[in-house]
Design a protein around this nucleic acid. Sequence first.
DNA 1: CTGAAAGCGCTAACAG
DNA 2: CTGTTAGCGCTTTCAG
Lengths: 357, 357
Amino acid sequence: MEQASGDDPAEPGRSRPSEGGRRARRVTSIDVARRAGVSASAVSRAFTEGAYISRELKARVMAAARELDYEPNPLARGLITRRSGMVALLMDELSNPFYPEALQAFGSELHRRGKRVMLFAPAPGEPLEDVLPQALRYSVDGIVVASAHVTSALAEAARKAAAPVVLFNRMLEHGGLSAVTCDNHAAAELVARLLAEAGHRRPAFVAGLETASTSIHRERGFAAGLHQAGLGAPRRVSGGYTYQGGYAAALELCRGGETPDAIFVANDIMALGVVDALRRELGLDVPGDVSVVGFDDIPAASWPSYDLTTMRQPLRAMVSETVQLLEDQLESAYPKATTVTLPGRLIRRGSARLPPA
Amino acid sequence: MEQASGDDPAEPGRSRPSEGGRRARRVTSIDVARRAGVSASAVSRAFTEGAYISRELKARVMAAARELDYEPNPLARGLITRRSGMVALLMDELSNPFYPEALQAFGSELHRRGKRVMLFAPAPGEPLEDVLPQALRYSVDGIVVASAHVTSALAEAARKAAAPVVLFNRMLEHGGLSAVTCDNHAAAELVARLLAEAGHRRPAFVAGLETASTSIHRERGFAAGLHQAGLGAPRRVSGGYTYQGGYAAALELCRGGETPDAIFVANDIMALGVVDALRRELGLDVPGDVSVVGFDDIPAASWPSYDLTTMRQPLRAMVSETVQLLEDQLESAYPKATTVTLPGRLIRRGSARLPPA
DNA sequence: CTGAAAGCGCTAACAG
DNA sequence: CTGTTAGCGCTTTCAG
């Protein structure tokens, strides 16, 4: 009698007393099948997009499923389909507010598409390509890499594993990886022209991580824009993409020679450090003595204490493009690397003297 | 010879030409077993902590595994053990820098223990208890809830599912859930006493979310401390735990009556808004006209523009306690709810006049 | 269009 | 201590 067929697994109080009380038995596709009077395959088909199943049967299955509060187990499904419904996110700069924002955006975007986020936040030292196999073990549907430390080793590992990888907010010249970035060159070029037009003559650049494509492209674009305006190459210092680095960079820039009258900083978090160093430690006026322009438009950029003029990255668009690229790669058998470049938008605030819009 | 036994699956160039080139065949426990000349169970045992297996056999298996670059598939393993090695993290306040920091910390702590983070960042509207079943479908080893929106509905759902849940940086009075928090009451009490001792007579409190335990306890502790010092209840305004909310709260506090001479703010991100409103919009001096004390010690608190005196939460300790509680719950068949409370530490900076330490 | 049977990769009894 | 046998929950040929 204990084994009477057709017993409802959702029914309470039927668990074996010896079970320990933990981990209620899960409702499976077989439970649903029994209830709907069909086979397990039918249940599977009902839950598979575009599977051959009659309208009527599907409805019956779905009804039973609803009653039992059933949904397919993604792990079991993933074992055979090799897709777990999870997307791995590699991020190692959570201390830059741009990334938590991106994380949030990825969360909702993926959730909308029925997927989940598996986060990999490797410690500073750990090589990214070590993370890749770990992610793959979980049969993730794809991998988004948002770390400044992408190397060709990673690209190579991705290629060998034939894993769908998309770089977010960075790119790799010859790695053969898809990527989504802002048009860093054009954006930086515009900043340079505007700064020059406003009469600045001693521009400087604060770089981020020397190997980061974002920093490199922003620097090149900035130099190109200055050149067009008839100005020479800017002085440059590196700030490692951190607040402290920006702070130190500003000091070095001002103490190590002629004080610049404009500083273009490769990202906002560093720019905040630059502004603080300029004002609090050097007693300079921003933008009176020196104009500061950042990149990203993180929330703090709009705070009155900073009121930072900055190049906004189209975050939501970048995120949804990234996810789309991932899906495209999953569809195609031999996907080719695609790079999507989205325009930035200048947000004029009070930290820089700029010509009227 | 194409089918010679013992062929190495990791060997390149052997994939069937018709395969499409995607998704290289994975190396399984059977591959390792064959190579080591043992059974699949032996491989399983070799990779299972404390399983009955001889030293010698284990060594042999591990050697073969290493050569093949094998590690067990956590999804397949999870199907039977009901543990996937993933821990779900529910966080919906990523815009408060305290949480990205916590996220990072959870990432390393869990990584250290061989687990992965599955992030759930529900949109503002979405009820938390809806997220629970989603997480459980993935056979997560546990769930860390770091959302201010914990309700008894969540607790109830967790109880019914018998899921290991630990609340991080919040608690629920009668929910029966384990939790890790800072000693909010004691910390706030200390702030009150110190502020009073320094001569402040018109204290105010900026609350976070009205339903958040952190905000409630900090408010109670603050009131208690003021009472001990012979002061009345503080004026209070709510700031919703956001920068903008803190900004608005400060304005309300100062325009809606007598300007306070000290403001204790339930968290740092709001405190930054308070400081900005005070200085930039009201032209007040901090701490000359009004002292401001925050809570958390987020990175921005130490920036020269704010130099915020604040109560630091012992983040790393809180995180590791949380993970430990989760593990304890997994071990025990009938775990009982445990609350761990860690002391905060006052970080004296320049935003408040306080008696010397 | 539907069901039966096989199997994804692994672990957990169960014998030996 | 080790191998053999089932089976986690699902999808997928393969017949019908």
